[in-house]
Computed example of a mutant assay.
Amino acid sequence: MTLADQTAATPAPGQPAQRGRRADAERNRAAIIEAAGVVFAEQGGTVDVREIARRSGVGMGTLYRHFPTKDDLLATVLGQEFSSWLTDAHRQATAIEDPWQALTGFFEQMLAKQGRNRALVESYAAAGGPTESCARHCYAVMDELRLRCLNAGLLRPDVTTADLVLLSTTLSQTVLATVDSQPGQWRRLLRISLDGLRSHNTEPLPGPATHADPSRND
């Protein structure tokens, strides 16, 4: 082996230690996110981050190096969870041949998911999702499901996607209000609400139609 080969094969001073620090940092970040997901689901977004640090096994300084504020941590954890759920729910809805079953199944999945995660239902009831990107994605999925039902003649024609989003937000408030006292009570209100969306209801809806789209900034 030449001197040049020996030099190339020898790691620069500090490289192993740097790689070790990066690996430790990645493990700490993953532990924080995992613990936060459990704690936020159990206790909601108002939980003290010291509980998250305790469960993840890291110090407060380490937690704050990765997530300077609790809002940063909450958005990261819920954004990942919501996006993963929404992608799966959309895939399942697309695979269902009957448009009405696809729409109702999507609502049921959404509210059931929120019923198991206090912080997630808080974020959806307040803003339609944990992040703007999540809200836009959810709106697009609901719009697709609405159009399927409308084209099949199953949905009353004056229902807009914004109506469906508002309905889901209202039902999320029901989930939030009854999650401890009457878990699952939202299923009754969901059935009543969805029956009102069917095309056999021909009496015009009151008030002007709403067409708010979170993907637009105007």
Rank of each mutant, 00 (worst) to 15 (best):
W100T: 07
A93Q: 13
D98P: 01
S83W: 03
S181W: 03
G61E: 07
A119E: 07
C134V: 14
A112L: 11
L171S: 05
E97N: 10
L111T: 09
L147S: 01
D98G: 02
A152W: 00
T178G: 06
V141W: 09
N151Q: 10
L164R: 01
L111D: 07
L73K: 06
T160A: 07
L78Y: 03
L154C: 06
D158K: 07
D98S: 06
P157C: 11
L63Y: 10
T104S: 08
A162G: 00
G196H: 10
N201I: 14
L145V: 05
F67N: 03
R91P: 00
S181C: 05
L164Y: 02
Y64G: 13
Q109C: 10
L155G: 06
G105I: 12
Q185C: 01
M110F: 14
R91W: 03
L155P: 06
A125S: 08
F106G: 02
L166K: 09
C149A: 08
Q92P: 07
D180P: 03
T104V: 10
H90M: 06
G196C: 03
F82I: 01
H200G: 01
A125D: 08
L190D: 04
R65C: 00
S168Y: 02
P99Y: 02
D71Q: 15
G115D: 13
A152D: 09
S123T: 04
D158E: 12
D88P: 02
S123V: 05
T169E: 14
Q101R: 08
D72K: 01
M60S: 12
W100S: 07
R118P: 04
K113C: 14
W100N: 06
T62K: 00
A112G: 15
F67V: 00
F67W: 14
D71K: 08
L120Y: 13
A135Q: 08
V179N: 01
T104K: 00
S83I: 09
G115M: 10
